[in-house]
Simulated scan of single mutants.
Amino acid sequence: MAEEPVVEEPTASGVGERRWRQAVRERLPLWVQTRCGLEPRSLAALAVVLGVAACAAGGFFWAGRPEQVRAPEVVRVAPVVASPPSVSVSASASAGSGGASAEVVVDVGGKVRRPGVLTLPAGSRVADALRAAGGVRAGADLTGLNRARVLFDGEQVLVGVPAAAAVAGPGGAGTGAGAGVSGGGGVPLSLNTATVEQFDGLPGVGPVLARRLVDHRTEHGGFRSVEELREVDGIGERRYADLQPLVRP
């Protein structure tokens, strides 16, 4: 007697899988059903491709999302500090004139209340020396005395003393008010106290050059040496040789 074939009844899991496939098949487009044939491997590959595409699209939109940007901080301008007021040369004695020494020793004589040798801070001017000597006596002639000139060490400042009576100093005769042109008692003319008229009396010096000499003296705070005449416009080597024995600082 022939055996009847055994027909296996579908299990619950098989029925669920069949229903799941049927549901997916109904929701897929027709071209997908035709190409993939709804095989398990094809469905898995399709799901992977769709997942990768969804991730790529999400990353693209996430990277292009608008972001908040902080405004740059306001840079404040530093307040301008006013420069300190300038200090006069006589007040800033430690600065010195030329930086060679912190003091200068000068001899103040003539018509002052306390004549003598004075030690002053470097950078002091003739006016400082006159104050240190007690001031000028009444009636003293200060014509030609440059009280704004910076003192140099070892010089002599004479007030109201005629040129013929001036005592020789470190560069020749003393520096005094009323010192005349060379020839008055053999006293050289002081470059630091002479007036325009006195310069005009020197050989080879006219009114224009005399004014240049006074302007140069005012601009540079006086003549330190006779050699500084070379720096004045209009004085060449020949004219300098003629003036050298006739003048002093």
Rank of each mutant, 00 (worst) to 15 (best):
A63G: 12
V52D: 09
V208C: 09
P5Y: 02
W31L: 13
T143F: 00
R224S: 12
C36P: 10
A122I: 00
G37W: 10
S13C: 06
E17P: 00
V112A: 01
V6K: 09
V232G: 04
V161P: 00
D242G: 07
V208T: 12
A95K: 04
R114Q: 12
A23P: 00
A78T: 06
S101F: 05
C55L: 15
R217M: 06
G206E: 01
S225N: 12
D233Q: 15
A23S: 07
R76A: 14
C55H: 11
L158Q: 11
A100T: 03
P170E: 03
A71T: 11
A56L: 14
V157M: 03
R76H: 15
P66T: 02
R25Y: 05
G59K: 04
R248H: 09
E26K: 13
G96R: 04
A138N: 07
Q68N: 12
Q33C: 09
L43P: 00
T193W: 07
G222F: 02
V247I: 02
L130E: 00
A173C: 11
S42E: 12
C36S: 14
E155M: 13
S182R: 05
V136W: 04
D233Y: 10
G221L: 09
V247F: 00
Q244H: 15
D200R: 14
C55W: 08
E197C: 03
E231Q: 15
E227T: 15
V80E: 03
V104I: 14
A148R: 08
V187N: 12
G201R: 06
A56H: 08
S83K: 13
D141L: 09
V232W: 02
R212M: 06
A71N: 09
L213S: 09
G98M: 10
W62R: 08
E3R: 08
L202P: 02
G51K: 05
A91D: 12
V89F: 11
A173G: 10
P245D: 08
G221H: 08
S225E: 14
G99Y: 14
E231R: 15
E228Y: 05
P5L: 09
T11I: 06
Q68D: 13
H220Q: 05
F60L: 11
R41E: 13
T175G: 14
E231N: 14
V69P: 00
A138V: 01
V75Y: 00
G109S: 12
G222L: 02
R230L: 13
F60I: 15
F61V: 13
V112E: 00
R230T: 10
G99S: 14
S13K: 07
S101D: 09
D141Y: 05
V117P: 01
T218S: 09
A2T: 02
V208P: 08
V49Y: 03
R125T: 12
E227S: 13
D200N: 14
A138T: 01
T143P: 04
T143R: 09
G14D: 10
S86H: 15
R35L: 15
E17K: 06
A140D: 04
G236S: 10
L202G: 02
L151W: 01
G186P: 08
A63V: 15
G169P: 11
S92F: 12
G178Q: 07
L28F: 10
G59P: 01
P79Y: 03
A54P: 01
V105C: 11
Q198C: 03
G59T: 15
